[in-house]
């Protein structure tokens, strides 16, 4: 296990290094004057320009600049936003819990519905229920989620008036200092009446929208994995022993069918973390995805650079964790690989 861990870590390092190279090059490739791109100042005097160039190390050799950049990142310096003049790491840490909360809820939603739907479809193979569920899964898988979000807003919020349109909580009614950054927990901690319910009402639509694609993927994966396992000899043995259908499906088959599903869940979590960009934009959810898009609009390239670096780092770490977890569930992997 330890060797497997080291090996996976060793594989991650070059990726991480290359990621730093890409983000380093990215800000150099942006068309326009480098000082303007990085500081957002325009029409400055040549002396000031020279001074800024020196301050930012732009008069150094490129390799030295890159090493400085890497050193900065290793020390937690991801640059400073042009617009807010605050360190990008601080902004990210402030916004990340919102994205994480949304991602976790969306994934929970997808797993809670996807696995039972997949199992049910597999046991009713070829029947009406199977065909309906798989048709729905195909639709969900093909859904342009930004449209799905607008559609849900139209029906749930504007027509039925059930859910709010944007944000994480009603800021006029409820105000409290964030403790954990997770609105569901903070609203309970605040002790204000109705705050938690309001937070849930805000969360529900973004959760459904972000969870739709993984829900469809998990349902399809569970179904095909389940069908494969149901044909195995040990399942037939279990049936022959006279075990109830529920026990055969729920215990003998499901446990083994879940192994590939776990991989898919892991892969999807990484995608979700960043896929939140569209969902957050539609629902004005104050997370890192919306912040990233706004940074483009404001031409805040340092924020974009730092943000992409941080989000990708998160995804790399999640994927690493999934791999390790997978090695624990399925010991064959770490010995074979």
């Amino acid at each position: 296990m330890f060797r497997f861990l080291l090996k996976r870590l060793a594989l991650t390092l070059p990726t991480f290094l290359a990621l730093m190279l890409v983000t380093f090059l990215m800000i150099r490739l942006v068309p326009g004057d480098p000082i303007e791109v990085r500081r957002g100042e325009r029409g400055i005097t040549p002396e000031r320009l020279e001074q800024l160039r020196h301050e930012m190390g732009l008069d150094q050799p490129v390799l030295k600049q890159f090493l400085d950049y890497v050193w900065g990142i290793l020390n937690g310096d991801f640059g400073v936003s042009i617009v807010s003049r605050t360190p990008i790491l601080d902004e990210f840490i402030k916004l990340f819990p919102a994205t994480l909360e949304l991602t976790i809820c969306a994934m929970t939603f997808a797993i809670a519905l996807g696995i039972p739907a997949g199992v049910y479809a597999a046991t009713r193979r070829g029947g009406v229920a199977d065909q309906t569920l798989m048709g729905l899964a195909l639709t969900g898988y093909s859904m342009p989620i930004f449209w799905w979000g607008l559609l849900l807003i139209l029906v749930m919020s504007n027509t039925l008036g059930l859910t709010p349109v944007s944000g994480r909580i009603d800021l006029i009614k409820y105000y409290f200092q964030p403790v954990t950054g997770f609105m569901l927990i903070d609203s309970v901690l605040s002790g204000q009446k109705g705050a938690f319910l309001d937070a849930v009402r805000h969360l529900i639509l973004p959760m459904i929208v972000l969870g739709t694609v993984p829900l469809a993927v998990i349902a399809r994966m569970t179904r095909s994995s389940m069908l494969e396992i149901l044909g195995e000899d040990y399942v037939r043995t279990a049936r022959a022993k006279g075990l109830s259908a529920a026990r055969v499906v729920g215990v003998h088959a499901l446990r083994n069918a879940l192994i590939p599903v776990v991989t898919v869940i892991g892969l999807q979590t990484g995608t979700l973390l960043a896929g939140a960009v569209l969902t957050e934009t539609i629902f004005s959810w104050p997370g890192v995805g919306k912040w990233l898009i706004e940074s483009i609009g404001r031409r805040d390239y340092p924020a974009l650079q730092g943000g992409i670096m941080l989000i990708s780092t998160m995804v790399i770490l999640v994927n690493l964790a999934v791999d390790l977890l997978y090695g624990l569930i399925n010991p064959r992997i770490c010995h074979g690989g």
Partner: peptide, 13 residues
């Protein structure tokens, strides 16, 4: 390792 939409955004920037 870079999420697809984020990478596309980076390239478009």
């Amino acid at each position: 390792s870079i999420p697809s939409l984020v990478l596309a955004i980076l390239i478009m920037a």
